[in-house]
Design a protein around this nucleic acid. Structure first.
Lengths: 238, 238
DNA sequence: CAAAGGCATATGGTATACCACAAATCAATT
DNA sequence: AATTGATTTGTGGTATACCATATGCCTTTG
C-alpha cells in the first residue's frame, strides 16, 4: 500500500459560493419566518461582512436560493425570505402527497421484506413517544418514517423533489404539531401504511399514504387561518 | 380614469441575469445534447462576449441553471450541460406520473364541465394529426393536453414542479416520438382519461393518467438502451 | 528517446469599484 | 403648512481585475 491510499482529498473543490448557499439555507430554515415581526430582509453587504467574504459568492448563493423559491430578489429593493401563504402551503402538502403516494406504490415492488420489517420496528419503537407526550421526539421519527418510504421507492428523484418541499414545510411544522390527538391518529395511520406495504398491495399503500397526508392538508386548512389573520392584524396596526 | 392607467411599466425590473438565465435555458433545450459529439461545454467568457455583457450576470444565471440540474459546474474545470442517464430519465417519468395522476384526481373535483368539454374538443381535433402522420403537430398537442390536466387540478405547484421535469424531457422527446403506433395508443388513452374526468371518477382518472405515463416509462426503458450504447461505442472509439 | 518536472495557459472563484435605480430626507416654494 | 422637487443614501446590478488551480505543452535530463 502506498502512502497515497491513506490521503483523501482535502475538502475537494470547496467553494465559498456552495458553502454560503448551505449556511444561508440553514439559517433561513432556522429562523421563524412566520413571526409577525420577523425580519425577512437579507442584506448582501451585511452578510458579506458577517461571513468575512465579498458579495460575489453571496450573490451566487442567493441566486440559487431564489431558484428554490426560498428567497425573492427584488431588483434595487432587496432580498427577502419568502413567506408562504396558506394556499401555497396547502399546495406543497398536496404535491408532497402526490410524490409519497407514488413512492409507496413503488415501494411495494422494490422494498425488501427486511427493509419493511425494519421500518415497522422503527415505527413501533417510536409509537410510545406519543403516549409519553414526547412530541418533539415523535416529530423527528415521523419525518424519518416518511423519508424512508420515499427511499424505499427506489426512485431517488421522488425523494429529492419532496425534499425541496420539505425544506419549506420545516417552518410550518412548528405551528402544526403539538396536538397529541393528531399524533395518535398519525401512529395508527403509519401502522396501516406499513401493513399495506408488507401485503405488497400497491393501490392500498398508495391510497393510505395519500389519505394520511391529506389529513394534514385538511388540518392545516382549518387551523392556519388563525395565524394568518393574526399576522395581518399586526401589520394593519403597524 | 387617469392617463396613468393606460401606461404599463416599461420592461419593469429587467435584469441581465434573468435574461441570460432564460436565454441559456432555451439554448440548452434547443441543442441536441444526446448527440454523441455534442459540445457540452459552456465557456463563461465566450458567453459573455457573445452576449456582449460581463461574466457576472452569466455566472449568476449559471448558478441558477445548476440548481435546476441543467448544468454541472465543476470548479476550475468548466461548466457542462448535464446529460441525463437512462435511469435519471426514467425517474423523471415516474415523478411526472406521480404529479399528473394527482392532478387528474384533483381535476375531477375542481375542473368545470366547460373546461373538460373544451379539453375533449381539443383532444378530438388533434386526434386526426396522428392519422395524417403529422407527428410534429400531434406532439405539441400532446404536451398541451398534459399541461392542461395539471392546470385543471387547481394546484399550481403540481404544474410548476412538473414543468421543471418537462424541461429536461424536451430533449428526450426528440428520441422517443415518431412512432405512430405509440401515438395511436396515446390518442385512445387520452380519450379514456377525459372520460374518467367527466365521470368525476377520481380513482379511475388518476389510475389512467398514471398508467398512460408509465407506458412511456416502459417504452423508454426498452428503447433508450440502443442510443446509450451507441454513444459509448463512439466514445470508446475516440 | 523517454520520463519527469516546470511553465504557459485556460478556467472558474473571488474581490472590488462603480452604476442605476428607488426611497427617504430635506429644502424651497406656494 | 402642505406640496413639490432636489439631494442624499442605500440597495442590488454590472463590469473588471486579479487569484488559484487544473491541464497540456515543452523543456530538460537521464
Amino acid at each position: 500500500m502506498s502512502i497515497g491510499d491513506k490521503l483523501s482529498p482535502i475538502a475537494e473543490s470547496f467553494t465559498l459560493k456552495d458553502h454560503t448557499f448551505s449556511v444561508l439555507r440553514a439559517a433561513i430554515l432556522d429562523m421563524d419566518i412566520y413571526r409577525p415581526d420577523a425580519d425577512l430582509r437579507l442584506d448582501e453587504r451585511k452578510l458579506a461582512e458577517s461571513l468575512g467574504i465579498s458579495r460575489t459568492p453571496i450573490r451566487e448563493a442567493l441566486a440559487r436560493l431564489a431558484q428554490e423559491d426560498l428567497v425573492q430578489i427584488i431588483p434595487r429593493k432587496g432580498v427577502f425570505v419568502c413567506r408562504k401563504t396558506r394556499e401555497e402551503i396547502l399546495e406543497m402538502v398536496v404535491t408532497w402527497a402526490a410524490l409519497e403516494s407514488m413512492a409507496a406504490r413503488l415501494a411495494t415492488q422494490n422494498a425488501t421484506d427486511g427493509q419493511l420489517a425494519a421500518l415497522r420496528r422503527f415505527a413501533m419503537k417510536h409509537s410510545s413517544d406519543v403516549v409519553r407526550a414526547d412530541i418533539e421526539e415523535y416529530s423527528d421519527a415521523n419525518i424519518k418514517f416518511h423519508q424512508t418510504i420515499l427511499e424505499l421507492s427506489g426512485c431517488a428523484l421522488l425523494g429529492r423533489t419532496a425534499e425541496g418541499l420539505f425544506t419549506h414545510m420545516q417552518a410550518v411544522r412548528r405551528r402544526t404539531m403539538g396536538e397529541s390527538d393528531r399524533a395518535r391518529r398519525s401512529v395508527a395511520d403509519h401502522m396501516e401504511i406499513i401493513e399495506a406495504l408488507m401485503a405488497r398491495d400497491a393501490d392500498l399503500a398508495s391510497r393510505r399514504v395519500r389519505e394520511h397526508t391529506m389529513r394534514l392538508h385538511d388540518h392545516i386548512s382549518k387551523t392556519w387561518n388563525r395565524l394568518e389573520t393574526l399576522s395581518s392584524l399586526r401589520n394593519a396596526a403597524g
